[in-house]
Write a protein that binds this DNA or RNA. Structure first.
Lengths: 337, 337
DNA sequence: TCTTGCTCTGAAACGCGTTCCATGCTCTAT
DNA sequence: ATAGAGCATGGAACGCGTTTCAGAGCAAGA
């Protein structure tokens, strides 16, 4: 075991970050052996292992994960695309993702799109360029076909019913059925003039929801009134505008199906200010069971968002083959219907 | 310009991902030239540039960012440590960070600690192991000294007054002064029995807040009552317990300083249920001006969180030398005092 | 005419850990 | 005694883009 004078080497290396080869030279072993020590491979004698460990300590050796990632071809990192990080809906999804990420020694980069296509494209490119191993798209803007083109580069998971898709996994709610159920609930409470407040108009989930709304009206032989449909509502603040529209209507709806608690909360508080009595004058049923719904006693459907995030993550790291999981929602009856 | 038969090469490479060397061989140029084309370096003749571009298109060449990162020694990625991602406070900080990240072609990995030291340690290790170029710690658990040990590995920024620190930048609020101001406001409204609800007890910001609370009482010659201090309150739900404690007190506070809107909202709604009149019976002043404060007309201090996030980011990428920026808060008078 | 200074190009080294493959031993099973 | 199995170790290739340096060609300024 010929060994270069350690003292000398320590001095010469000076500022430069020591790497695995430096360690090998100093310890008088091969780089392979050093690598084995780092990775706790059993085929290293105690003597050499200890010596390598010592040298690593002495030189304050720090592994360079960028090299590991390049070498292994994996980054232990997934991307998470969300339209808005502040929205509790996505916050809870992130919570679930984070839970599982920790357990699996993964990290995730958050990509906030604000529903700008360019941002989503950027996320897909990260996958293509191997910055991330997988991608969770909680809400998409691009066509499904476009997204599919990135499947060769890594696992992609979406939050919508994609049961007929062989390439992309999904964890989703049956929005059609859920909306139908909510409407039926309002109907059973005597409502015949039911309004519909949602986020964006486009998008797979929105499609099914709108479809359910229309088909429900048809089934019950109620007429469709486009002024009863309110779109682009995402945050608490958006509820105010809805109320101002409603108060100016000659024949306002008696009930509102709102696709997010935050907006429902906005409607409720804005309504209170102008003297709208909930639920007598206006019933409200919402979704998610976020803190704001608890706070204001809003009747809502609880959506298992944390669990959804966890499942999304596990699909994204390729733990399972392509598959499609549906989650159930639970009605929480409170005081707004 | 000797050139290997392209046709042949295309066939031979088959499945294997093409890399810069393959492209070089196929195009009959050096890897340097290919690299120049990729990076739009001017010193490449139009002819060669076009030809390389063509070959890249034909082979569907995709750059491997992991290699770029290793080579450049930078990941264009920062870490963001937050205790909870769902909390709107941190959500808004993230919003600001995301805004600037996009502009600077950076990405960020979110590390949710739940105030577990191990998680924070992991984030620091990512810095040490070059997975990230910089780190934003929005709320820390480790001692400042421990954190400082990681400064050699990359920029670190914290959200607390660190003005005397030469190694770590900070973007912060003068919590001492702000709490004093809030207490004075309650005092001016006639309150002498003022309670204090906060998040965790430890932590730099908490230290200054607690200090301000105590010193304010001293200055006004009010006695300190430990039952007036409520800790570990982070979310809406936590407000309920505070209320149940208050109703069981013989001599309850007439005003509450709450360090987060979410908790204040919880107190307000729980209080309403047990018939506590706000502000007559119990005044509440809070912080952040989150949606919940707007929703429930809570008097609060607006904190420029998005802006804070943006500044944090710019510090984290080393845009400026180590520095400490203080941000101002604005009192928003509503109906709870 | 000579020097200076671009423009254009490529070989080779660099950043750094992982992994395949070969080699040499020792020990156990036959 | 011998073959097969497992242990220990190292050389070299691999993953892949960037960068330094050297050299050639050519035009403008001295």
């Amino acid at each position: 075991m010929e060994r270069v004078s350690e003292q000398e080497l320590f001095l010469n290396l000076g500022e430069k970050m020591t790497n695995i080869r430096d360690i090998a030279k100093m310890a008088g072993v091969s780089v392979t052996t050093v690598s084995r020590v780092i990775n706790n491979h059993p085929y290293v004698s105690e003597e050499k292992r200890n010596h390598v460990l010592e040298v690593m300590k002495k030189t304050n050796y720090q592994i360079n994960m960028k090299a590991v990632q390049l070498s292994k071809g994996k980054s232990q990192m997934i991307g998470v695309v969300v339209p808005f990080a502040t929205n509790p809906f996505f916050g809870l999804l992130i919570e679930g993702i984070a839970n599982q990420a920790v357990k699996h020694h993964f990290h995730f980069v958050l990509i906030q799109t604000n529903y700008e296509k360019e941002r989503e494209q950027e996320a897909l490119n990260m996958l293509k360029h191997k910055q991330i191993d997988g991608l969770i798209i909680t809400s998409r803007i691009a066509e499904m076909q476009e997204v599919e083109a990135y499947v060769p580069y890594g696992e992609i998971v979406v939050c919508e019913n994609a049961t007929n898709n062989q390439l992309i996994s999904s964890v989703y709610l049956d929005h059609y059925q859920v909306i139908f159920r909510a409407l039926q609930y309002l109907y059973n409470h005597g409502h015949r003039k039911i309004g519909y407040c949602t986020g964006r108009e486009s998008g797979a989930n929105s499609y099914y929801r709108k479809k359910a709304y229309k088909e429900f009206l048809e089934e019950k032989e109620l007429s469709y009134d486009s002024s009863y449909v309110f779109t682009d509502n995402f945050f608490f603040e958006d509820g105010h505008e809805i109320v101002s529209k409603i108060v100016s209507m000659k024949n306002p709806p008696t009930a509102l199906l709102v696709t997010s608690d935050g907006v429902a909360a906005g409607i409720l508080t804005a309504g209170e200010k102008v003297g709208i009595n909930v639920p007598d004058e206006l019933a409200i049923i919402a979704f998610d069971n976020q803190p704001s719904a608890k706070m204001l006693d809003i009747t809502t459907f609880e959506v298992p968002l944390v669990q959804m995030g966890e499942k999304l993550f596990l699909q994204a790291i390729g733990k399972y083959p392509i598959r499609h999981e549906e989650l159930e929602v639970t009605l929480i009856e409170r005081k707004t219907v």
